[in-house]
Design a protein around this nucleic acid. Sequence first.
DNA 1: GATCCACGGGAATACACGGATG
DNA 2: CATCCGTGTATTCCCGTGGATC
Length: 385
Amino acid sequence: MDVEDRIRRRQRGDGDRQLVLDYATLSPTTHVAEPTDRGTLLERLLDCFDPVFDGDLPSDAYVWGPRGSGKSAVLTALCRHLRRLPLQSGSIIHTTTRAQSTTAPEFVYLDAREAGSDFAIYHGLLDGLVDERVPQHGLGTDTLRDRLTDELAGRSVVAVVDHLNEPDTLSAATVDDLFASARDRIRWVGIGRHPPDALDWEPPTVIHVPGYRPQVLVDVVTTRADDALGGRALDHAGARRIAEWADGDAHDALAALFVAADTAASAGKDRIEMTDVEAGIAEVPRPSVSLGRLLVLPANRQAVLRKLVTLAEDQRSSVSAATTAITETDGIDLSAGTVKRFLYELAESGILERIETERATGQGRPPSRLEPRFPPTVFSRLSDQ
DNA sequence: GATCCACGGGAATACACGGATG
DNA sequence: CATCCGTGTATTCCCGTGGATC
């Protein structure tokens, strides 16, 4: 939050001291420019990227660790800073003895959740390299690859590809193959949760990121609360409660903070009390699925999910019942068959959980109840636009 | 005309249960 | 008793279509 926001907040807050929520800043999917207490990871990444400062390409690398350990946070921040490294700035070119390209490698961050196909990977990379818009339709994947090759003449790039090997994203091996034709121009850094020996790709460099230690997670939560809500909205006890519960996972910690803040604000409070904290914790299922995965779903699927979480218990008692309830609401003009298929697909990828009812009566296969594997409040607030 | 992608629709398959059959 | 079969429901799978864009 910048100065203006803070001033506006004070102006608005004159008289009533109610919490004002800044959903965008509060969102667990928002990464700050300066991640909290991840100095070790940052140093190891910079070691890995060291050749870049001489204008050379680093080796491929794989960064792995549990969900919510700051991988994305640190690498998005780093990419932002390294994106167009100005090579001419004195400190960088000292070695004139060796032939090197005239420009430093450029960094492009790609989220495999958004770039879920060969086409999309090439598109994203090309889009990061050129200023003009790259068409989304009307040209084939091969054409796009050729154009990328052309564009890389005399240049080089480090592609950071986040969220590999998730239920709906490309595998490390697939991405590696995609870059195979331009190894001398492209190096890439994969990010994922699976240990490297579970991969079908053998990266030359591997960096492991452990989950946050409890004290550090307290800092992360506190910093986020200060940024999004203003100082002292969350006391130390509240932050510690969230951090201990979250067990090293910053995503879930920030999701709980989000719900706690929303609960407190809805009650007209000016700060988050322990009951709000508990409400926040209670709403985040464990394990939960990343909100980042939900927010990149196509609009229609998000609409179905938004509706689903408002349904009463008995309307969610079976996939068919939920389908009927969702289909009959305004604003969703999808056929019943499509809604039902969406629900099954969302369950398949872990966003919803199907819980089979143990039923004694009735014929046929017993239906499944649908439970969201994400905090509904956070999703609804962030998904609505 | 080509291309990618989301949708629609429905066929095919899986599963649970109870009753019939060997 | 073990197995098969029919019925009804749930779930998975697949492919054609059409919009948007070049």
